[in-house]
């Protein structure tokens, strides 16, 4: 089941006149996993999601969902997908319950208590009198999630669903999404500007930059290939590198700053390095064992484009 592709895009391209917002994207989303779309603002994440949901036209390429090629607004496919795109959008003058009743009626095929149970799941009151316009940003996000899960979809497409949530809310939503995915077998495609959030949540990741999919990998693969290294901060990089090369026979290192060195030689241990440097009169202010994070990997892939 884990390797079954539930959603795939082939050479997916979106053009606005001469501008290519998204170019030749080949996404492969596996069933029952959380797929994180990473990219800076304007990278093309929302455009991809909108094309998948039929909100914007496809300039080139194709999308396959549940093994079927998407041709238009296929009801049989879209009733199996729940989504939040950009911000949760509801009628400002209606209450949360009224809003969900409207969208449940539009879907037409959902269970009797779907509205009530969806609101319960996200912790919002049923049949309250508060109009949507008076909701806090967190409540709006919760209502958006309630709307997305109301018809018990197989795929959830969530565009920045934790935007505006407080830290507790973010943790709750993360746990909830993990439960949905790992216990109920839902497939979730999520984009977020909070990179650490994606790192904690996603099983697979696609890195989008300037409309291109730079890399698609699983978090397990990333952890396996992540470079582990020792970072030292010294008062003299020149002397320290000479010592590393001559005394410790270490050639596998990089000077990253005027007083910072990253040592990739796995045979060396921290005590050995500290003893050698200190005994030769080099001031050692820091020595830590590190490994490359998703942020480092993202930065290296996007050519130094720091994540916002």
């Amino acid at each position: 089941m884990e390797n079954q592709i539930i959603l795939a895009t082939k050479q997916l391209t979106k053009k606005y006149g001469d501008v290519r917002a998204v170019e030749q994207i080949n996404l492969n989303v596996k069933k029952g996993r959380i797929y994180g779309l990473l990219g800076r603002n304007g990278a093309g994440k929302t455009t991809i999601m909108k094309m998948v949901l039929g909100l914007i036209s496809i300039s080139e390429g194709e999308i396959e969902i549940f093994g079927e090629r998407l041709k238009g607004n296929e009801k049989s496919i879209y009733t199996r997908i729940g989504s939040i795109i950009e911000t949760p959008s509801f009628y400002s003058y209606l209450t949360g319950t009224e809003n969900l009743e409207i969208f449940s009626r539009l879907r037409g095929t959902i269970k009797k208590n779907a509205v009530k149970s969806a609101l319960e799941v996200v912790g919002l009151p049923y049949k309250d009198k508060k109009p949507f316009v008076s909701y806090s940003l967190g409540m709006k996000q919760r209502l958006g999630i309630a709307n997305a899960i109301m018809n018990d979809p197989e795929i959830l497409i969530l565009d920045e669903p934790t935007n505006g949530l407080d830290p507790v809310g973010i943790v709750e939503i993360r746990r909830f999404l993990q439960t949905l995915c790992h216990e109920q077998g839902k497939t979730i495609i999520i984009s977020s500007h909070i990179l650490s959030e994606i790192a904690l949540l996603a099983d697979d990741i696609g890195i989008i930059h300037d409309g291109h999919l730079l890399k698609e990998f699983s978090m397990n693969e990333l952890e396996e290939k992540n470079k582990r290294f020792i970072e030292i901060k010294v008062n003299s990089v020149t002397k320290a590198t000479q010592l590393l090369e001559n005394m410790m026979k270490c050639k596998n290192y990089t000077v990253t700053d005027k007083n910072c060195i990253e040592i990739y030689d796995e045979n060396l241990n921290t005590e050995e390095i500290a003893d050698c440097l200190v005994s030769h009169g080099i001031g050692l202010s820091s020595l830590v064992f590190k490994h490359e994070t998703l942020e480092d990997y993202f930065t290296s892939l996007t050519g130094g484009a720091k994540f916002e």
């Binding site: 949901l53 039929g54 009801k75 795109i85 969208f103 539009l106 879907r107």
Partner: peptide
């Protein structure tokens, strides 16, 4: 309109 079209 986004919620309506994705309803679908």
């Amino acid at each position: 309109i986004i919620n309506i079209i994705t309803a679908p």
